[in-house]
Design a protein around this nucleic acid. Sequence first.
DNA 1: AATATTAACTTGAAGTTTCAAGTTGCTTAT
DNA 2: ATAAGCAACTTGAAACTTCAAGTTAATATT
Lengths: 161, 161
Amino acid sequence: MPGAPDGPTRWLDQDEMRAWLGLLGIVMELPQALDRQLRAEAGIGHAYYSILAVLSSSPNQESRLRDIAALTGTSLSRLSHAIDALQGKGWVLRQPSDDARRSTARLTPAGAAMLERVAPGHVSEVRRLVFDRLDPQDVRHLAEISAKLRSAGDRADGPPP
Amino acid sequence: MPGAPDGPTRWLDQDEMRAWLGLLGIVMELPQALDRQLRAEAGIGHAYYSILAVLSSSPNQESRLRDIAALTGTSLSRLSHAIDALQGKGWVLRQPSDDARRSTARLTPAGAAMLERVAPGHVSEVRRLVFDRLDPQDVRHLAEISAKLRSAGDRADGPPP
DNA sequence: AATATTAACTTGAAGTTTCAAGTTGCTTAT
DNA sequence: ATAAGCAACTTGAAACTTCAAGTTAATATT
């Protein structure tokens, strides 16, 4: 009995429904907006951009795939495909990992250069879409709420109990 | 000069960064969690589910594609492909629109039946992921914030200036 | 009354993500 | 020391989304 709640279904009340539709709106439209801007500037979407951003602030501009996956919230499979694509563009390189089994990804100079080029535009887009519309209180509330929702879904690849 | 901000880049401060990373986390993980549950119960993701949900609460269980697109926040192209798929599953039917050019989509009895079957599980998942973790104040804040962010990105298909 | 424009889609190809099924090289227990 | 088990990926196919380029029918222009 997978999805059946115990008692009779408790539907969303009016306040909850307003919040839910609002949240859904954000969750559908924000990524699209970010993707549009980045794709116009850099030719990649936000998911790929995040990968580069993570690498860029990693110790040696490099990191193990598992770690990137954890930080960006994607599955290893998705990451692996993404690294293929980014490598094709010359922005990332796979490296036969120093430590153990399998590889590490490293940001190339070209990748770092392109990040430097588009980061300012990206930040200003984030301001335009989000922070220009919120006052400091909203920002605090948003941080609190998102902390409470964190780890909402359990991993896509993660271990089954 | 597409993405270049006017002055020197104004990066995110610490509070903004916390809120931004939190928001990104939500925006990446919530859809995945919703998709997983719905795909297990119904064999479709949340985007497709929303289409059926919109139809189900429309006047004649039917609606013009443009209206569905507006309500679900997707492009017409995406919708058109989605309707193909949903029609293939027997949950939706295209109808040569009564009024003007092109079609309307209508929920089939099978579609309505499956919605009734999975809706309770879906709502309880939404509670588990979101509302069980928030108090009434958070819910109000969330509604306020999402209202402020609304219409953040301008349409994907929309008219260029 | 032609013609141009626009709105509402449809279509196909290319790119991205998911899912299931491999590999491969550490660990750990036997 | 050897076999099981596991962790960290890789791979390929199918599903989904985006993008650019059509259609087609209403509407507005001349």
